[in-house]
Design a protein around this nucleic acid. Structure first.
Lengths: 352, 352
DNA sequence: CTGTTAGCGCTTTCAT
DNA sequence: ATGAAAGCGCTAACAG
C-alpha cells in the first residue's frame, strides 16, 4: 500500500522547510539550485502526485477560465461537455475557480468570431475550446499563445496549433468502427447511405470529414463492392429534410444501411420511424436523448459515443493542473469509442 | 453556475453554528429536533453534496476497511479491481483510511472460508467482497450484518444478502449482448460453442450461470436453429486443455463461433492461434493483457468489459460515504457493458 | 533565498 | 444541545 506523504514529510526528507517544497512544486521561483535539486529528488523518489482537491483548499489566487463552445439547447451534445466542465469546477474549486462560457452558432462563422473576440478581451488564465471553425480557432489560439495563455481543445483538434491538451475522439477510427459495425448488420448486397447536413456555403467540419474518410476506408478495404450514396438533411428544417429524404430513398431503392457522422442521427431515425421503414440499419453518434429514444425503438441500430462529459471534465482538470503545478501530460488524449446498442445503453448512461 | 456553499454558509442560513451543521451532516446526535429540521431543510434547499476529498482532511477517526477478493497474479482480472481500490484509498484519505486485503483461491472453498474467517476476526468499519462462493458469502455477510458492519459486493451479487451496494455487470444482459454480437459476426448456419472451465466437484459461479442463461435466451429468441455445443478447458493446465479442444473440434466440425463467459478466453484464443484456426469467431470477457493481445492478433473478435477498476473504486467510495455521511444510494449499480474490438481497445485502456 | 505563520473549509473537542 | 476554538494538510504573504 502506497504511503501518503505530506508536504511536511517531504520537507523533512529534503532537509528544507515546507515553504520551499511548495515553491518547488508550484514552480514559484526564489529557490536555490541546491534546494530545488534536493526537493525534486525527493519528489521523484516518492513519486509525488499532488492532490488537486486538497490543493484547492489553500489556494488564495483566483483563477478564471474561459470556455468557447457551440451554443446548445437542452439535451444536445455540447450540453454534456458543459456538464463535465461544471463537475470539474464543483469538484476542484472552492469558489476560487470561475469558468466564463461564451457560445457561438456553429453554423455561423461571424458569431464564432464574435465569441472569440469577446473571450479574448477578457483577462483569463486558461481557455477551453470546442472548435468548429478551423481558421478562426487557429487565428485566436495563436493570440492566446502570444499572451502566454494555455488552451485545450475538446471534441475537435485543430491542426497547426499548440494546445496543452486535446480530449476527443480519434475521428478517423471512429468512422472506421462505424463502417465495420454497419457492414456486420446490414443485409449483404445492399447499398449504404451517408447522410450529411445541408450547409449554407460553409464546408463540413474537420470532424465529419475525417470520420467520413475512416468510414470509406473501411468499406473500400473490406467490401469494395458496396455502393455508397450521399443523402442530405437540414439541421433545423424537418419538413424539408423529410422531403429531401423522400426523394433520395425513391431514387435509391437498394439502401440497407445509413450513417450520420454527428449527433443528428435522430433526424434520419425519426424519418424512418414516421415513414415506417424497418429494413434500413442506421448508425449515429452521441447518446443524446432523441438518439437514445430511437435506439430503444429500434430505428437506430447503434450509436457511437465519445464521453463528452469526460472531455469537459478533463479539459478543466488539465488546465488547472497546468496552472497550479506546471504539469504537462500527453497532448493528444483520445477518448474511448464506445459502442452503444439498445441492450447496454441504460447502464452506459447511469455510470458516472 | 452552481454556487458552492460552505458549512459556515449553511450554518448562517439555518441560524445555527457550524458545529451543529456538522453534527447533522454526520448524523452524530446531540442536536435538537428543531435545529436538525432547520439544517436539513437548508441542506435540501441548496442540494448539498459533501465533498469526500475535502472532508477527509479534517477527519480524526481512523477507518479500516477489509477487502476479501480472489487472489490474482499480475495482469489478471481481479488485479484491476484492486487497482481501483487503491486509487480510492489514495484519493480520499490522508492516511486515515486503511484497506486490509484478504485473498482466497477462487477454486478452493476451504481457502475462501479461511479468508472470511481471518477477515471476520479483524475489527473493521466496512467490508468489500468479491464473492465466488455463494454460501460462504451468505453466511459471513449475515455475521457482518449482525455486527452492524456495512459491506459491498463487487463483480458478483449474492442473493439473500443486504449489502449497502453492488457494483458489477448485469450478467444476464451481458451474456445476451455477447450472443447478439456473435450472431452478427459468424457465418450463417454455423454452430456455436460455449467453453467452460472444467471444475473439480464445484459448480460454476452464479456469474457464469446467468451469463450463459442470457446468451442462450438471445439465441433461442433470434436464431433458434443455431446449434449450441459445450466445450471445456482447464484453468491451469494448458496441454490438457488443448487435448480436450482437439477432440472437441474434431467431433464438432461445423463450429463457427465460440464464447467464454469469463476472462479465460485467452486459453481458447491461444489454442486457435497455435492450431492456426482462422474461421472461428471468439468472444470473451475482460480486457486483461493476454485477451487484448489475442484481440489485436485477430484470434479473439470481441471482448466484453465491465470496468473492474471502476468497481473497486466505487466500492470503497460508497463504503466511505456511508460511514461518513450515512449516505445510502442505489444498491444495484450495474456497470456499462463495454464492447471492445481491435479498433477501439487502445483508447479504452488509456482512458482513466 | 528561506523559514515562519496565518488562513482556507471541515471536523471534533471542550466548555457552557 | 450548542458555539467557540483548535487542528488537519496545503498555500502564500511576510519578515528576515
Amino acid at each position: 500500500m502506497t504511503k501518503r506523504y505530506r508536504i511536511k514529510d517531504i520537507a523533512q526528507m529534503a532537509g528544507v522547510s515546507a515553504g520551499t517544497v511548495d515553491r518547488v512544486i508550484h514552480n514559484r521561483g526564489d529557490v536555490s539550485p541546491e534546494s530545488r535539486q534536493k526537493v525534486e529528488d525527493t519528489l521523484r523518489k516518492i513519486d509525488y502526485r499532488p492532490n488537486l482537491s486538497l490543493s484547492s483548499i489553500g489556494i488564495k489566487k483566483r483563477y478564471t477560465l474561459v470556455a468557447i463552445l457551440p451554443q446548445f439547447t437542452k439535451g444536445e451534445y455540447w450540453e454534456q461537455v458543459e456538464m463535465g466542465i461544471q463537475r470539474a469546477v464543483f469538484e476542484f474549486s472552492n469558489t476560487r475557480l470561475k469558468v466564463r462560457s461564451f457560445y457561438y452558432d456553429q453554423f455561423d462563422l461571424f458569431s464564432c468570431r464574435q465569441a472569440f473576440n469577446k473571450a479574448s478581451s477578457l483577462k483569463c488564465d486558461g481557455v477551453l475550446i470546442g472548435a468548429t471553425f478551423h481558421d478562426e480557432a487557429m487565428h485566436f489560439t495563436s493570440q492566446f499563445s502570444n499572451r502566454g495563455i494555455p488552451y485545450v481543445f475538446v471534441d475537435t483538434y485543430v491542426n497547426n496549433t499548440r494546445p496543452i491538451a486535446f480530449f476527443g475522439p480519434h475521428s478517423y477510427l471512429s468512422g472506421y468502427v462505424e463502417a465495420k459495425l454497419l457492414l456486420h448488420i446490414i443485409e449483404p448486397g445492399r447499398d449504404i447511405a451517408i447522410f450529411q447536413a445541408c450547409r449554407i456555403g460553409n464546408e463540413s467540419s474537420t470532424q465529419t470529414i475525417s470520420r467520413k474518410y475512416g468510414f470509406m476506408s473501411y468499406i473500400k478495404e473490406h467490401s469494395p463492392e458496396t455502393k455508397i450514396l450521399f443523402g442530405q438533411y437540414y439541421n433545423s428544417d424537418i419538413p424539408a429534410s423529410y422531403e429531401k429524404m423522400d426523394r433520395f430513398f425513391a431514387e435509391n431503392r437498394n439502401i440497407g444501411g445509413a450513417v450520420v457522422f454527428n449527433s443528428r442521427a435522430y433526424i434520419v431515425g425519426s424519418y424512418l420511424r414516421d415513414r415506417n421503414i424497418r429494413n434500413i440499419r442506421l448508425i449515429g453518434c452521441g447518446t443524446i436523448e432523441p438518439n437514445v429514444t430511437l435506439l430503444k425503438e429500434g430505428y437506430i441500430s447503434c450509436l457511437i459515443a465519445e464521453r463528452p462529459e469526460y472531455q469537459g471534465y478533463m479539459g478543466v482538470k488539465t488546465l488547472l493542473e497546468y496552472l497550479l503545478y506546471n504539469k504537462q501530460g500527453e497532448v493528444a488524449n483520445y477518448t474511448p469509442i464506445d459502442i452503444i446498442i439498445p441492450e447496454n445503453v441504460d447502464f452506459y448512461l447511469e455510470a458516472k
